[in-house]
Design a protein around this nucleic acid. Structure first.
Lengths: 127, 127
DNA sequence: AAATTAAAGCAACTGTGTTGCGATATAATA
DNA sequence: TATTATATCGCAACACAGTTGCTTTAATTT
């Protein structure tokens, strides 16, 4: 762990996430890259990038998997990106929101991980 | 809307949710009821019950669909159950938490719906 | 450059959820 | 109660995201 090969697939994906502000659907990546690599390759490379703490994944309302770049020094052991994900009903984009969500104390429960998924209308579409 | 037929499937499902505190996986329902009804029937009856505001659904970390009984006078138009769902890593149960989660204001964003999914260890397993 | 190790490609598969449609049950009406 | 209308059921087939096994190819190591 800690070592990730700079394969063609990894380079392409890294580049893609570098230039993409919003999150990307796994299936969209497969579609966009179908001429450059096999879908198995896409899924496996995404897995590796996530293991390395370079990107993180989450599941949308419909059960589809999204990926977005990590910004908070995540490692293979721990993802620090516990921010909400926001899906705009208009432009359909999904974005990471740079805000903290505080979960109220729940008696006797040990909280391990929190995923917040918000839908609504984003700032861009709200003008 | 507002009228739901008391079919065999609906009765069985209602009874099941009445006696079940935690949420139930759709696939588990299909499995549990496979001798009594077809899986298509299960999915369609669940749809109807959700439309009527009797149960609500959400998606777990793995993309699987969960259903749980509504407790806050939900209607077909609006589900008021905006509580977190908590999955225990030990007993694997998923429960609705009766707490409010406040999402911080996000400039220029219109919030429509919020889904919070928490994983950890529940009170029952924490003793 | 040769050997080692990891990633890529392909095809076939898994599993959840959906759809179309004829058969059947429920409710409305006569 | 018998008849008609309408919604649900069951079945088989399908859609589709994601996975697996295995062989080939590419990236590192020595």
């Amino acid at each position: 762990m800690g070592i990730i090969r700079k394969t063609k697939a990894v380079k392409i994906l890294l580049d893609l996430f570098e230039n993409e502000f919003s999150a990307i659907l796994a299936v969209d990546l497969v579609e966009r890259l179908k001429n450059e690599m096999n879908k198995t390759t896409v899924y496996r490379a995404l897995d590796r990038l996530e293991d390395e703490g370079i990107i993180h994944s989450f599941v949308g309302k419909n059960g589809l998997k999204w990926y977005a770049k990590c910004k908070n020094n995540c490692t293979s052991d721990h993802h620090n990106d516990v921010h909400p994900h926001f899906e705009c009903k208009k432009c359909k984009k999904v974005m990471c929101l740079p805000v903290e969500v505080t979960i109220p104390n729940i008696p006797n429960h040990t909280i391990d991980n929190t995923a917040v998924f918000i839908t609504g209308i984003c700032d861009n579409c709200n003008d």
